[in-house]
Simulated scan of single mutants.
Amino acid sequence: MDRLDELLNVAGDLLERVDTVLSEVGAPGGHDVWRELRRVRLLPGDAARAVAALHPTAILDAVPELRADARVYADLADALPLASGWTGEAAEAYETARRTAAEHLNGGPDSLGHRMSATADLADSLTGWMLRTRAGVAAVLAGAMLSTEAIVLTAGDHPPSDQADAAAAIGARLLRAAADAYDEAEDLLTGSADLQTPLSV
């Protein structure tokens, strides 16, 4: 359990209140929260819980195995015996097949070894992204809990317009943190587009 999990346990009522006010009362026209709602397409509480559902450990645990597989492919490519001691068409055909197999195992960007290494690199990047995203949303949530907007939403009988302003302010900050983080993730995945291309056999 990290800071985000701890804060969500404490901030459940506040997030529920933010979501309820935005759903039932709305937000001021032209407020930033509308733009962020369009970006995320989730209410602030749901967005915070979606970030909390990111589990970096599950991905991080797969990295050593991916790197080990990449080394296995490299070792297999190196272990393919040369056509030494024999000549002729059969030897030439074998050498052609050996080079092709070695390149497929651990050659250029489309080789199995390169794909495994690139996948491990992506997993490392996604793990870092998840940790940063969780920490970022936790920081915003901690600030929201100590804000005057939180007091307006959870204490006393404030006018609906004041509650709408408060919910919009907290919601915009939380949604912006989530949206910016997911934009970063999209950039990471776009940068690894070569992994989405099927290997040629």
Score class of each variant (00 low, 15 high):
L112P: 00
E95K: 09
A168I: 02
A70M: 04
A58R: 14
D5N: 08
A47Q: 06
D19W: 07
A48T: 09
T100H: 12
P28M: 03
E184V: 13
R41N: 12
A193L: 11
V63A: 03
A91N: 03
E103K: 11
W129T: 06
L14T: 03
P56R: 10
R35N: 10
L146W: 10
E16W: 12
T133P: 01
L174A: 03
A135H: 05
G107T: 09
T20W: 10
E184I: 09
D61Y: 00
M116G: 02
A53V: 05
G108H: 12
D75G: 09
E36A: 12
G12P: 00
D69N: 08
A79W: 02
A11C: 04
L199P: 05
I170T: 05
I170M: 04
R17N: 10
G88H: 10
R67M: 09
I151V: 13
Y94P: 10
P198W: 13
G143C: 08
P81T: 06
D69C: 09
A166R: 00
P28G: 05
E186M: 11
D180K: 00
V33M: 07
L4M: 04
E89A: 11
L153E: 03
V21Y: 00
D165M: 11
M145H: 05
D187G: 10
L174E: 02
A193T: 12
V140W: 00
A77P: 02
A120Y: 05
A50D: 13
A166M: 01
S161E: 15
A144T: 01
T87W: 12
V201K: 04
A48I: 05
V152S: 03
G171W: 02
G26L: 01
R98F: 09
D157G: 08
T133Y: 03
G191S: 11
V137I: 02
L22S: 02
V51Q: 02
A169T: 13
Y94F: 13
A167D: 08
W129Q: 08
G85Y: 02
Q196T: 14
A97R: 13
A178D: 06
T100N: 12
A79N: 11
Q163A: 01
L22N: 00
L188I: 08
H31L: 01
L112S: 04
A83P: 08
M130S: 15
E16N: 14
H104I: 00
N9Q: 12
E149Q: 13
A62Y: 00
Y182C: 03
L80C: 07
D5Q: 15
R39E: 11
E89F: 02
E186A: 15
D183W: 06
D187M: 13
D32H: 09
R67Y: 06
V25D: 10
W129N: 08
A169V: 02
L8Y: 07
E186V: 07
V72M: 12
L174W: 08
L43G: 04
V152M: 03
V140A: 11
G136A: 07
E89S: 04
L66F: 11
A135P: 07
V10T: 15
R67H: 08
D194P: 01
G136L: 04
P160C: 08
G113I: 03
S117F: 06
A172D: 07
D19V: 04
D69L: 15
P81H: 11
L188E: 08
I59Q: 12
